[in-house]
Design a protein around this nucleic acid. Sequence first.
RNA 1: GUGGCUGUAGCUCAAUCGGCAGAGCACUUGACUGUGGAUCAAGAUGUUGCGGGUUCAAUCCCCGUCAGCCACCCCA
Length: 427
Amino acid sequence: MAKKVIIPAVKGTREFYPETMALRNFLYGKMRKASQAFGYQEWDAPFLETIDLYAAKSGEELVKEQAFVFEDRGGARVTLRPELTPSLARMIAKKQRQLTYPLRWWSFGPFWRYERPQKGRSREFFQWNIDMLGVSSPEADAELIAVAATFLRSVGLSPEQARIFVNNRRLMDSQFDALGIPAESRLDVSNLVDRRSKMKPDVWTAYALEQGLSQSQLDGLLALLDNKDLWKDWEELTRLFAALDALGVREYVEFDPNIMRGLLYYTGTVFEAFDLSGGVRRAILGGGRYDDLLADVGGDPLSGVGFAMGDVVIGIVLQERGLVPAFEPSPAPVLVTVFDESLWQESYALSAELRDAGLNVTCYPEPAKIGKQFKFANKMGMRVAIVLGADEVAAGQVAVKDMRSGEQESVPRGEAAETISRILASA
RNA sequence: GUGGCUGUAGCUCAAUCGGCAGAGCACUUGACUGUGGAUCAAGAUGUUGCGGGUUCAAUCCCCGUCAGCCACCCCA
């Protein structure tokens, strides 16, 4: 036998067999439902963009290291989109005066980043993006967080299992000011904060001092990062939490001064959701307020708030927690068997009749041993199998078998659809 | 891009000191010529990821490469 040579899939891509596709569609359905519950409109942008779009505002890492860039046949530098926000900013800017605000848009589609694949990270992934533009208020921030919480609740994650951690850039800036940390080293301090959970305390302390912090600044920073009540003196956050209370999602949300987020364009509230079991150490979703983005890409000033959620991490979390619904192999719960060469047309005609009656029906595509056909129905998880043999045809009947109970009855052909529906309805 | 672990049948994994490549599940056939799941019986399955090296002999040791996983980096 010749050796089978299978050309491998591109590194970092995932192949969606029906079982995996069902999970992706499940997630899509929940995202869509949460988005629409708050009145967001679905939209999308091109998958291919010029690299210039990202060079304008995205981080250097994203553009130079992580973007898939290639030349098209005309010599233009084209990239597979690594994120959606620049496309959003452009599309808003092009129609800025024609759109109705506050504008609420959501999207779900593929993105590509040239990363080293590992748990929770692939090079080709799907991402839910949702944004509100045209309003700059803590209540708008709260709405986006509420959408995220609504999603988490809808997939069966409780507040004990998943939590959204919130912080505020302006609050932290004022605190850093109070500690005498200059504006130009703020980025380094943010990275320092981001890194704290990943380093041992003494190593982190040494690292912090190495970065130029004084001992008193370090002490102040540590006190700051442990202060879970800091939000109570900051109006943006007291209003945010009041709104979350009113929206009924307060239990999913927690203030945490350690949440910084690397993206430069965030200006106010920032948030990230995590699975509390720690099985996956990555954020399930993350977002925040960006007040300068439109102006940065050449539009008129327009503030926005939004977040993104990748399909990979949430998929792993739901699988580890057993929250993924059971896979139903066949979309058609009914199999019409084909008895033999002389009767296949009867079966095909019956399957058409049943489809006309509104049922999803698979007809076996060739005559085969009846046992083989039943086995197929069983493996495909079908509820009902129909047998149309010589006896049934002669009597104008069809045999309807309930695959779960094993019971079978013969009914007049005209009543078949009704009998099947009754079986399907019986849980 | 840096460092580490792993790769054996379709799947999950075994193979002692370097000495003929194994099991369970799944699969095929039959027990059962008009009936799936359960049981029993029989059967098929491998360039041990790929390429090279050492050796009388390599799944095992060495080098390279590809892929997966883990920690960095970054982030969804």
